[in-house]
């Protein structure tokens, strides 16, 4: 059997496919961020109903492998008679997944703001939304930078699982090239390098944010 060689055009093909990886990551992070914030607020909020709903959501999603979630959203919705495209199914699964993990991380950050900050702001007659907006969340956001960046990196890498439902992103493109060229080591080295190129700046950015003046004025210090 003759296999064709791996050339620079193939690298370009991979980089093009990486655009889908980045797009899927952006969708997962944006959607997951909205759901995550709602989840974190619900879990730290006064309503017992919302607290339990949010905690059920987090526990269910965290207890299901993302792979299973992807199959569920692709084939599961299909069974209901609704035709979903791979990109839609992958987005849905990744958003739900990211929402649970971000929500859980952010809940921890909100809870890490000392209780006395709630008391002090309540004593000044602020309402609960005002307390959150002006006192609690600004401090929680600073604590949230490292775990959030960590999860963003996880999200970028998790998009590779979308290849199993036929969505052509970076990993899937690598598989397709490998089927044509039979150079798995070379191809997946390039694929890995592209993932690394996407994730490394995120980690660097996190370090910068943590060292910057705002990040160092932590709510716990001086307490």
């Amino acid at each position: 059997m003759n296999s064709r060689t791996f050339s620079w055009t193939d690298v370009l093909f991979l980089i093009e496919a990486a655009r889908w990886t980045l797009l899927l990551s952006a969708i997962a992070f944006a959607g997951g961020g909205v759901i995550g914030l709602a989840t974190a607020l619900a879990r730290t909020g006064p309503s017992r109903l919302l607290r339990s709903l949010a905690s059920i959501y987090v526990e269910v999603i965290q207890g299901i492998p993302l792979l299973a979630l992807l199959f569920l959203s692709y084939y599961g919705i299909g069974i209901l008679g609704i035709n979903v495209s791979p990109v839609l199914a992958a987005s849905l699964a990744l958003v739900l997944n990211a929402g649970a993990f971000l929500g859980e991380a952010w809940r921890g950050c909100i809870e890490a703001v000392p209780r006395t900050q709630w008391e002090a702001s309540a004593s000044l007659a602020l309402t609960r939304p005002q307390q959150l907006r002006y006192v609690i969340l600004p401090q929680a956001v600073r604590l949230a930078v490292p775990p959030t960046v960590g999860l963003m990196v996880q999200i970028v890498k998790a998009t590779s699982l979308a290849s199993v439902i036929g969505f052509v992103e970076l990993s899937r493109a690598g598989q397709m090239l490998n089927n044509a060229t039979f150079k798995p080591f070379l191809i997946f080295a390039v694929v890995g390098a592209i993932y690394f190129a996407c994730c490394y700046p995120l980690s660097k950015l996190s370090g910068r944010l943590e060292r910057s003046g705002n990040g160092s004025r932590s709510p716990v210090k001086g307490f």
């Binding site: 006395t116 008391e119 002090a120 004593s123 007659a125 602020l126 005002q130 932590s218 709510p219």
Partner: peptide, 26 residues
């Protein structure tokens, strides 16, 4: 008003904003 043993100032805000936050938003 109440003043606490541990001050409980808002560490992310300047002295001015600590003082004016409640008059402003409340």
């Amino acid at each position: 008003g109440i003043v606490f043993q541990q001050y409980n100032l808002f560490p992310h805000l300047t002295v001015e904003r600590n003082v004016t936050l409640a008059p402003d938003v409340v």
